[in-house]
Design a binder for these strands. Sequence first.
DNA 1: GTCTATAACTCGATAGAC
DNA 2: GTCTATCGAGTTATAGAC
Lengths: 212, 212
Amino acid sequence: MLTNWLKYMVKKIKQAPAEEKILDAARQVFMAKGMSGARMQDIADAAGINKALLHYYFRSKEKLFERIFIDAFDKLFPKLGSIIESKDTVFKKIELICSEYINQLQLMPYLPVFVISEMNRHPEVFLHQVWGRKKPPLKAFVELINASIKNGEIKPVNPLQVLLNIISLCIFPPMAKPLFQQIAGISKKGFDEMLEERKKIVPQIIIQPLKK
Amino acid sequence: MLTNWLKYMVKKIKQAPAEEKILDAARQVFMAKGMSGARMQDIADAAGINKALLHYYFRSKEKLFERIFIDAFDKLFPKLGSIIESKDTVFKKIELICSEYINQLQLMPYLPVFVISEMNRHPEVFLHQVWGRKKPPLKAFVELINASIKNGEIKPVNPLQVLLNIISLCIFPPMAKPLFQQIAGISKKGFDEMLEERKKIVPQIIIQPLKK
DNA sequence: GTCTATAACTCGATAGAC
DNA sequence: GTCTATCGAGTTATAGAC
């Protein structure tokens, strides 16, 4: 009996690194080229292993993609629980949410466009796998806004519009970096400075219309 | 001599519809599936013609894609000349720009994500074909803001940040429609109503911080 | 678990008849 | 200009040795 357990653990330990390497490689390749642009060979190369091994671990390209896509979808909405539950004012909370969000997205600028474009392209995957899973933590946000309206801290507004404004102002700029650089004729560095400046600008834009 | 001219015109007339049909079909298919996800067969089917004819008109998939991509890139920035050159106040102009932009994007919600994701994936195409072409009409916008600052109509601000805010608040919501519906748990109709409401909200958000 | 070799298939592109 | 038929490169997926 002990030997069986030992065999299992040895298997587990040897197994883990390959699986992790594959997931990291797949994430990178799928994000850069999308589902249909990515090649299993690219992923194998990036993981430093053989093509056949990908199928050993994940059976098919589609299964591997679904795994990566769902992980990405979940990552798109940062954990805001601690900010919302803190003792700060609504205004301070919104300020923290915005700058936290902008910071997160600087680390993964390709995530939003990957999720959105693949969502349009594979509604089946999306509906079957993502629908019905745990929802992102926006309920808490909506309740925060509604409570603040009730106790008179802020003007009456549609919480979903506020949320959509925050998301738009935080997510869009990093994903449009190459586009905006082109049309505005500015350098990468110039754009990064704009993003930095936005950590102050965005909260102001969001908060000002809420003040009485 | 007259016969040659006749032959030429007949050729032209017969040719035009097929070429147009192909371009319409290609636009539709490329936007939905991207360069690597689109199949020449899909495009041929959508155009109601044969696969070989695509190559007759556009030589290769890549050439056809470039044509569609460049057209799309140009369409992403609406002609704002007439609004900017009008006799309205800056505030009225911004209001018109926002609602005009939101209207345009409702008609082509897939355009932005198509342009952005393909731009990330094929920087070569982008640099060779789009770079160096006529720039979108944002120079006029920047000058409008700067002039309004100088003559004291609005507070001093970075015109590019104002532009980025407008673009973010107008472009992102329609392109994130499926995503936002999912996380907010609302219907298509509910989201469309939000978009309608935004034609008033967005200009307010942009204008308020500019007022003295 | 990991590899090599190869089967099975998809898709862009071309040849050639009309 | 438009079609049918087909080639050939490139890809996913599997069989089978180690």
